[in-house]
């Protein structure tokens, strides 16, 4: 059950014993009891009603006695060493000033910069290689066209490829000798 339901039921019960005007007067008197500002005319009206309505007078007495009972409850005192414990707990709970939260950010920033640089430089370096590969492909297509147009071009193409395989890298193993190619007459090599 909602605790407010109980309170609402109490309100309803009390409203049965007090008229609406007396309810209003009781609220005004309650504010007076707390020293809150109340219009003098409003207070005078409430006090006048207090004299004429016994139910209101009883409710007002009850309210005063409840207030007195609460006010009479003693306050509590802190146990010995409470302040020391709080100061120690605050010191223990104080945040440390490590640069920990900054490090991951710096690390992420460095990684992002490295990736960007890598892509930029890598792209720049790769461009001449791609151009060279394009040129080689174009030369190869010329060779194929030449092969198609001349019966001697086949030997020419094979010799060219062989020489390419033999010459560029001094560290590579020597090519396997091909007697057929080595024996070919120099005059058959097209200019």
């Amino acid at each position: 059950m909602n605790p407010l339901d109980d309170l609402n039921a109490d309100d309803a019960r009390q409203s049965e014993t007090l008229s609406a005007e007396s309810e209003q007067a009781l609220a005004v008197l309650s504010r007076c009891l707390d020293g809150e500002p109340v219009e003098p005319s409003e207070e005078a009206r409430a006090r006048s009603r207090l004299d004429s309505d016994p139910a209101l007078a009883a409710a007002w007495r009850d309210m005063g006695s409840a207030q007195a009972a609460l006010a009479a409850l003693p306050g509590l005192t802190a146990s010995a060493g409470f302040a020391d414990r709080v100061v120690a707990a605050a010191a223990a709970a104080a945040p440390t000033h490590e640069p920990a939260p900054i490090l991951p950010f710096v690390r992420r920033l460095a990684v992002a910069a490295a990736v960007t640089l890598g892509v930029t430089v890598g792209g720049g370096l790769a461009r001449p290689l791609v151009a060279a590969a394009d040129a080689s492909i174009e030369q190869a297509w010329h060779a194929v066209d030449h092969f198609r147009s001349s019966p001697y071009a086949a030997d020419d193409l094979a010799r060219g490829i062989h020489s390419l395989l033999r010459s560029p890298d001094p560290t590579s193993p020597p090519p396997i000798p091909d007697p057929a190619l080595d024996a070919a007459p120099a005059a058959e090599v097209p200019r």
Partner: peptide
């Protein structure tokens, strides 16, 4: 605040009774 204090006082008195 005013309403809560007023109603709480009345309820408290009922509980004490």
């Amino acid at each position: 605040v005013e309403s809560r204090i007023f109603r709480a006082r009345r309820k408290l008195r009922a509980l004490l009774e």
